[in-house]
């Protein structure tokens, strides 16, 4: 079993950006949405368009991300649906005072009983769900490309240059270094146990029995790594690890495009704050026309 990183070098503007500016942009967007608690689709939709634009600029091949998107869509619809079912309440309170007439109703009863309730779909609820999905997708769209577009070799230095300590940053690099080795150990162990008649694809029994049957794979790899660690510690001490502030041979530098990009992130953050706290715009919003239409 070989570790295959999702990362490929691509000649795109996104990959030419400094990784720090991308993480800072991500932080700006997350904080911009959550601190002022923005629920107005008039603000969310433009943000959504910006994130989609950035996603397209990353030029990730569709076949690579198909499965991920499927998973994300299922999760988001499940969560949004569940949220609607359980309460119909999100952050904003306007849904509670939902006085709009139902568009249609879905009876949810356990068959043959009177247990259950009628779920009334109203225009407010529809808009709420739409806003919520768009809000979640904006985040996912920013989060998904990271493994595909950020070289694993620069995670350590990225964190270092964002103020994280030498040791913690190096832990990141060391983890990347060991991953393929441990994955190979795991595949050797799988082979070794299969040669003893162990069959992975036909684990029998209930959950407990099946989990117990993983011990022949988990125990050897984990225990060997505890032994390996002792030698790695010696090897690193012998090369003066942790004795002085480190030089990091890889360099990161901001280019003008990075300042523009971070500026965009900051602008989004500030815009959202200003709208909410200066103009009072940002609460959940339904176009009055739609409400009027629904209420006949």
């Amino acid at each position: 079993m070989l570790v295959s990183w999702k990362y490929r070098p691509r000649n795109t503007i996104i990959q030419r950006l400094d990784p720090r500016s991308r993480l800072i942009f991500l932080a700006c967007v997350i904080l911009g949405i959550t601190i002022p608690n923005i629920w107005d689709i008039r603000l969310i939709f433009p943000l959504f368009l910006i994130t989609v634009g950035l996603y397209l600029l990353a030029r990730i091949e569709w076949k690579d991300v198909r499965r991920t998107w499927l998973f994300i869509f299922i999760l988001i619809f499940f969560i949004v649906g569940l949220n609607g079912l359980l309460s119909g309440r999100g952050g904003p309170t306007s849904v509670m005072q939902d006085t709009s007439a139902p568009l249609f109703s879905i009876p949810l009863f356990i068959p043959g009983t009177t247990w259950g309730f009628v779920l009334k779909i109203t225009i407010v609820r529809v808009f709420f769900a739409m806003t919520q999905i768009m809000r979640m997708l904006s985040m996912a769209i920013l989060a998904i490309p990271i493994p595909y577009t950020m070289d694993p070799n620069i995670y350590g230095i990225t964190f270092r240059r964002m103020g994280v300590s030498d040791k913690v940053s190096f832990t990141m690099d060391l983890a990347f270094r060991f991953l393929p080795t441990l994955a190979r150990d795991l595949s050797i162990t799988i082979d070794a146990q299969r040669a003893r008649g162990y069959e992975m694809d036909s684990l029998k029994g209930g959950i407990v029995a099946r989990l117990r049957r993983l011990a022949p794979l988990i125990v050897p790899v984990t225990m060997q790594s505890t032994v390996t660690g002792e030698e790695v510690i010696d090897a690193m001490d012998l090369r003066a690890f942790g004795t002085a502030p480190r030089t990091w041979i890889r360099a990161l530098s901001f280019a003008p495009r990075d300042y523009i990009f971070m500026g965009l992130g900051l602008a989004i953050f500030i815009t959202f704050l200003v709208f909410k706290f200066v103009f009072g715009v940002g609460e959940f919003w339904v176009p009055p026309e739609a409400l009027a239409w629904a209420n006949g």
Binding site: N153, R177, A240, F241
Partner: peptide, 16 residues
């Protein structure tokens, strides 16, 4: 301790 050869050789001097 490093993922590529260049960084591996750099490790000691980096620590110094």
């Amino acid at each position: 301790v490093a993922s590529n050869v260049f960084s591996e050789i750099a490790f000691g001097p980096e620590n110094l």
